[in-house]
Design a protein around this nucleic acid. Structure first.
Lengths: 342, 342
DNA sequence: TTGTATGCGTTATCAG
DNA sequence: CTGATAACGCATACAA
C-alpha cells in the first residue's frame, strides 16, 4: 500500500491522515477507533481496513483533543500535604491502584500544608479539566474551598471533614483520640508532655484538645509535623520528664523524632502516637499507637468519587473507626505480660 | 455594567463571553489574558477593561484547549514502581516540589513492578500530551521503552539506567553494593543469607550478583520487595542462621520484615540493607545500611528533564555515589565503641 | 453504512 | 493597536 497525499512523516498521525490513507472520512475513522458501540455500526470491511491502517501507522488518539470535545479527561487529582509521609504514601498508592482499575488516572499534588499552594493547585487542576478531586484540605470551610473550585466539580474531602461537604471520608478523630487515651489511662498515665503538629490543621488540633482534656499537660510543644520537630521538642521535655508518664505526639513523624531521642534515656516514658511506628515491637520504648484503617480510607474515597463521577448526588460522609495497638515494651513494662490488652 | 447577548449563566465563561461583554474581539482578550509580552501591545484602557471584566466574570482559561493549540501541557509524568515505598515517596515529593517551582505539575503513576502496566501507562501519558517523563523503568532496553513512547518525548530514566539512553540519573549500584560489602567484610562477615527482590529488576539483580561474588551465600530467598517476603524468608533462613554472620537484603522493605522476625533471636546476626531503616539506632539488631542520596537523585532528574524540555539535547548520565551508615548495635557489638567506623 | 459540517476554547497568522 | 479567521484533533448531529 502506498502513501497518498501529503502525509507528513515523523508526525504522529491523526484521524485525517488515516482517513485519507483508507479512503474514508474522519467520522468513519473516529467511529471505529473510538471503540464504543459506534464501531459496530460500521461495515466489517472498512472497520478492519481502518484498524489495520491505524495500526500500521501507529495511530494514538490525542487525548487532549478528545477531552476538549467530550469534556471528560478520565483524570482525578489527589491533593495531599506531603506524599513523603508514609501515611499519605500508602493512601495515594491504594487510591491510584483502585482508580486505575476504573479507568481513571491520578494527578498528584503536594500542598506542603501551605494554604496558598493549596488554592493555587485547586485552581490549576480545575483549569486542567480534571473530572474529580480528592483533597486532604488545609482550608477549613466550604466557602474557602469553593472559592478556588467550580461548585459542580466532584469533590471528596479526605481525612479532614469540612462542615457542609457531604462527600467526605475520614477516621473518627474523637473516637481515635479517646481510645488512645483509654489505653494510656489504663496504663496509669495521668500527666503527659504533649507534642502537637500545626494547629491550623484540624486533625492535630482536635487530637490536642482531647488529650489536654483527659490528661494534665505539663509541657507542650508545637511545630511542623517532622522528625526534627520531635527532636527539638524532646529537649524542652527533659525537665518535666520525671513527672510525666507519657509523651503524646499527634502524628508519627513527630513521634519518631521523640523516640529517637528517647534512645538515650534509661527508663523511657510511654510514647502515645497517631498512626504507625515501624518495627515498634523491637523498640525498648513503650509505645501505644492509634492506627487508622488506611485501606478503608482509600477504598472509601474512591467509592465516593466514583459515585459522584457517575452523577450520583446522594453521598453520605464516611466515618471510620480506628484501633489501638501497643508494642511489646509497653506490655512487658506495664503489665508484665506479652499480649495486647485489647 | 450590564450583561449583553446570550450569556449562559452557570457556565464557566470563555474568551468569547468576555469579548462580547467588553466589546472587543477574542484575539484581544486572549492577548491580554495570556499575560505574555503580547499584553503590552494592547492599549492600557482596553487591557484594564478586559482584565476587570474577566475578573468579575471569574474567567479561568481552559488549559485543555490551550494545550491543544500550543502543544504544551506543562505537565510531566513520574512513573515509579510504588509510591508507598518511602524511597519513592521522598523522591516523588522532592521532584514534585522542584518541578512545581519551575511551573510544571506532576502526574504520578504506579507501575507496581508490572511490565504490562508500565507500557500501558507510558502509552497513556504520551497520549495525554505530557511534556516530559521521568521513569523508574522495569523495561531493560531502549527499544522496549521506545515501543510505547514517541522517540521525541523528553525522557529521563531514574534509578535504573538503560543502555543507550543518555538522560538518566541513578546511584552507582556497583559502588553502593561494594562499599556495603566492604563494611560487612571488615565486620568479619564471610557467610551470608541473601534475600533478593525480583530479579527482573536490574537493581536487585545487580546487588545480588555482587553480594554472591563477595560472600559465600548459604541460603537464598527471592520474592516481592515487601515486608511479608522478609518474614517468609526468615523462616527459611533459620536453619543456616548459626553459620552465617549476616543476612543481606536488597531493599529496605525486605529488611524490615527480617528485622521484625529477628526480634525473637537472642543473638541476632548483622543485617545488611540498601536504603534507610527508620530509627535503626534504637534496635538491638546490628544493621549496616547503604544509603542513596535521595535529594541529589531528585535534583538530578529534575535538572535533566528541564534541560530536555528546554530543547537541550546534550545531557550526560548522572551517577551518584552512596554512603554506608551503621547503627549503634553494630558498632557496639563488633567494635565495642560508639562511633561510626567510616 | 458512511460522509459533511460544526464546535470544543485557545493561540497564531495575517490584515488593517 | 486590534479584529477576522484558520487551525489544533477529535466527536457528533444531521444528512444522504
Amino acid at each position: 500500500m502506498q502513501l497518498h497525499g501529503t502525509f507528513k512523516l515523523e508526525m504522529t498521525p491523526t484521524l485525517v491522515d488515516i482517513a485519507r490513507e483508507t479512503h474514508t472520512s474522519v467520522s468513519t475513522v473516529s467511529r471505529v477507533l473510538s471503540g464504543g458501540a459506534m464501531a459496530n455500526r460500521i461495515s466489517k470491511e472498512t472497520r478492519d481496513r481502518v484498524r489495520e491502517v491505524a495500526d500500521r501507522m501507529g495511530y494514538r488518539p490525542n487525548l487532549l483533543a478528545r477531552s476538549l470535545r467530550t469534556r471528560k479527561t478520565y483524570t482525578v487529582a489527589l491533593l495531599v500535604s506531603d506524599i513523603a509521609n508514609p501515611f499519605f504514601g500508602q493512601l495515594g498508592s491504594l487510591i491510584e491502584r483502585s482508580l486505575a482499575q476504573h479507568g481513571y488516572s491520578l494527578m498528584l499534588c503536594n500542598s506542603a500544608e501551605d494554604l496558598e499552594k493549596e488554592s493555587d493547585y485547586l485552581r490549576m487542576v480545575a483549569a486542567k479539566g480534571i473530572d474529580g478531586l480528592i483533597v486532604v484540605p488545609l482550608a477549613s470551610s466550604k466557602e474557602q474551598m469553593l472559592q478556588s473550585l467550580p461548585a459542580t466539580l466532584p469533590l471528596v474531602i479526605l481525612d479532614r471533614p469540612i462542615a457542609g461537604i457531604p462527600s467526605s471520608v475520614a477516621s473518627d478523630q474523637d473516637q481515635i483520640a479517646n481510645i488512645l487515651c483509654d489505653v494510656l489511662d489504663r496504663g496509669g498515665v495521668r500527666q503527659i508532655a504533649l507534642l502537637c503538629g500545626p494547629q491550623h490543621v484540624i486533625t492535630h488540633r482536635r487530637r490536642c484538645e482531647i488529650l489536654s482534656q483527659r490528661f494534665e499537660v505539663l509541657s507542650r510543644y508545637e511545630g511542623a509535623a517532622q522528625k526534627a520537630t520531635g527532636r527539638a521538642a524532646f529537649r524542652q521535655f527533659t525537665e518535666v520528664l520525671p513527672r510525666v508518664q507519657a509523651i503524646v505526639c499527634t502524628n508519627n513523624f513527630l513521634a519518631q523524632g521523640v523516640v529517637e531521642s528517647l534512645g538515650q534515656i534509661e527508663r523511657p516514658p510511654i510514647v502515645g502516637v497517631f498512626d504507625e511506628i515501624p518495627m515498634m515491637d523491637l523498640l525498648r520504648v513503650p509505645i501505644v499507637c492509634a492506627m487508622q484503617d488506611i485501606p478503608a480510607l482509600a477504598e472509601g474515597c474512591v467509592a465516593q468519587i466514583l459515585k459522584l463521577l457517575d452523577g450520583n448526588q446522594t453521598v453520605t460522609p464516611i466515618l471510620l473507626p480506628a484501633k489501638v495497638v501497643t508494642n511489646k515494651a509497653f506490655e512487658v513494662e506495664l503489665f508484665g505480660r506479652d499480649e495486647p490488652i485489647l
